[in-house]
Amino acid sequence: MKSTAHHDERIANMTFASVYPHYVTKVEKKDRTVDELHEVITWLTSFTSEEIQSLIDEKVTFRTFFERANLNPNAHLITGVICGYRVEEITNKLTQQTRYLDKLIDELAKGRKMEKILRVPKP
């Protein structure tokens, strides 16, 4: 699947608040918790739970969300396919960051162990 400028712009302008409830539903349906969801978001972005709530309340776009984020230096270790795209091959930085988040949440919902989701290196 090839990303387009229109697709990238649509993602950039989507609000985090509009997607967040879907993240919650997805993980809770699979017996994971909002705390675990926040742990994953925090790992990727460095946002605290309070900051996540503030971003939701502000109705920030994904563009603003990732502009304010301090992306984890190990985010490049997130690989695989999400929404028909191989995340490591996405050329638009913001779209890739958004798909990183989608991929982590997907792994959480699929029951993957937290240390694997958070790319904890093996000793």
Rank of each mutant, 00 (worst) to 15 (best):
A12E: 14
N70G: 07
P123I: 02
I41S: 02
T98A: 12
K30V: 04
I82S: 09
K2W: 07
R63S: 15
N13A: 04
Y23E: 00
E115K: 07
F47V: 07
T98M: 05
H22C: 03
V19S: 07
E51Y: 03
A17I: 00
H7V: 00
N92C: 09
I52F: 00
K29D: 12
V120A: 10
D31I: 02
K103N: 03
M1K: 12
D31N: 14
A12V: 08
D35I: 04
T91Y: 03
I11F: 04
A75H: 08
V60S: 09
H6I: 11
K93F: 08
A75K: 09
V87Q: 02
L71G: 01
N72R: 09
R63P: 05
Y85P: 01
E28C: 05
P121R: 14
E107V: 01
T33I: 09
L77C: 11
E51A: 13
D102L: 10
L71W: 02
A5W: 01
E51S: 13
H22Y: 11
D31E: 14
F66A: 05
S49A: 14
E9D: 15
K26A: 12
T48K: 08
L37V: 07
K29G: 08
T91L: 08
R32F: 08
E51K: 14
F47W: 10
L101V: 07
S3L: 15
T33Y: 10
V34D: 08
V34F: 06
V19R: 10
D57E: 14
I11V: 11
E28M: 11
T48D: 07
M1E: 09
T79A: 13
I117P: 00
A109V: 06
T95F: 15
I105S: 02
L37K: 04
I41K: 01
F65M: 00
R99W: 09
R112H: 02
A5F: 09
L108T: 06
S49F: 01
H7D: 09
V81H: 01
A69I: 04
V81I: 14
H22Q: 11
R99T: 01
C83L: 14
I90F: 02
E67C: 08
F66S: 03
S49L: 02
L71D: 03
F62E: 06
F47N: 05
A12D: 10
T4L: 12
D35E: 15
Q53A: 09
G84R: 10
K93T: 13
V120Q: 11
R99F: 14
K29Q: 14
A5G: 00
R32K: 15
K116W: 07
F47Q: 11
I11S: 00
N92R: 06
K122P: 06
E107A: 10
Y85K: 13
S49N: 11
V81L: 04
I82M: 07
M14G: 00
F66T: 03
Q97L: 10
S49T: 09
Y20I: 03
Y23V: 01
T42A: 13
A12K: 13
L108E: 05
K93A: 13
R32N: 11
Y20M: 07
K26Y: 12
R68K: 15
L108H: 03
Y20F: 15
E89N: 14
M114P: 04
T98S: 13
I117Q: 00
V27Q: 11
S54P: 00
P121A: 10
